[in-house]
């Protein structure tokens, strides 16, 4: 598109547009390097069309040439196919440098017993790095990235107090199958005085005692008798039962009632009463199926060695 007639005072061709009476635009050709770069993109596209899947033809498309990918399917057969992301991904999973390196360790973990893993510093180093990431993504949202839990909601995994058991087998079972922690609501079951008595007894088990010793005795009676029936799940000694996932009330660890944060004895009572009235309903999802067996093993060892494993 030449505008030979449109020349400014210096003789350079312009586009012919004039704004505000004197503003003009030069019509210089683009620089050579730019022009050649532009042709270069066209050549690139032609080569790309040849090598990669590009053009649709009817119900099919061009598959590309000289660019096949070979991977192994689940049956162990070698499959060669035209270039595509899915095949490339499978190939990377199977033969990629990082994947191979990681698989070597994953195989070791899968084949070793828990005792063997825990005695081998090399394997433990792998557990600590890989399970830490697995934990942060899968377990962290509830238990916290550092496994400290959230009081009132999700248990702390760093202490040695275990609702469902802290042996390596128990932990694996918990991760694999999930858990459903349930305490019924006692709303409307007790009048206010009896509710307070049970709470006072529960607090006294952890060494927090008010003035009113008779109340504690009354609470004990309700707790251990048919009136409250608390002992069905928490046991007569109030140390909890692993089979029920019921809390040990006789230690100083609190998972639901935020007793440590309550300042006065009255507030501590109110915290415990709240749990009795509302009940507890918590679910840990089952990870079998979502996580691989080896990933579950990694997490089991990791959780076990966080500090509280038995």
């Amino acid at each position: 598109m030449s505008n030979a007639d449109n020349r400014n005072s210096k003789g350079v061709e312009t586009t012919g547009h004039v704004w505000d009476g004197d503003l003009q635009e030069y019509n210089n050709p683009p620089p050579m390097w730019w022009t050649w770069a532009f042709y270069g993109t066209i050549v690139f596209a032609l080569i790309y069309w040849l090598l990669y899947p590009t053009w649709p033809i009817g119900k099919d498309f061009t598959k590309g040439m000289f660019n096949n990918i070979t991977f192994v399917n689940d049956k162990g057969e070698e499959v060669t196919t035209h270039w595509n992301m899915r095949a490339l991904f499978l190939k990377d999973q199977q033969t990629g440098e990082q994947a191979v390196k990681q698989r070597e360790y994953l195989d070791k973990i899968a084949k070793s017993s828990y005792a063997e893993i825990m005695q081998d510093p090399d394997k433990m180093a792998f557990v600590n790095s890989m399970a830490k990431v697995l934990f942060a993504d899968n377990c962290g949202p509830c238990h916290g990235r550092g496994a400290d839990g959230v009081i009132g909601l999700y248990p702390n995994l760093r202490d040695d107090d275990w609702l469902w058991g802290g042996t390596i087998e128990d932990i694996e079972q918990t991760i694999r199958k999930g858990r459903n922690g349930y305490m019924p609501s006692f709303a409307g079951v007790f009048p206010k005085e009896k509710l307070e008595a049970v709470a006072a007894y529960v607090l006294s088990l952890s060494g927090i005692e008010g003035e009113d010793k008779a109340k504690i005795e009354e609470g004990k009676h309700i707790f251990q008798g048919e009136e409250g029936g608390c002992y069905y799940c928490h046991a007569k000694d109030a140390k909890g039962m692993k089979s029920q996932g019921s809390a040990n009330l006789a230690d100083k660890v609190w998972t639901i009632a935020n007793v440590p944060a309550a300042a006065t004895y009255e507030q501590k009572l109110a915290e415990v009463e709240k749990v009795i009235v509302n009940g507890v309903n918590r679910e840990m999802p089952a990870w079998e199926g979502r996580l691989s067996d080896t990933q579950i093993r990694l997490l089991t060892v990791y959780v076990h060695q966080l500090g509280g494993g038995k």
Binding site: F71, N73, D74, T81, N84, R86, L90
Partner: peptide, 12 residues
Amino acid sequence: SKYDEGYFVEFR
């Protein structure tokens, strides 16, 4: 778990 990983590649 019902499908071979190679199966999904056939769709690309």
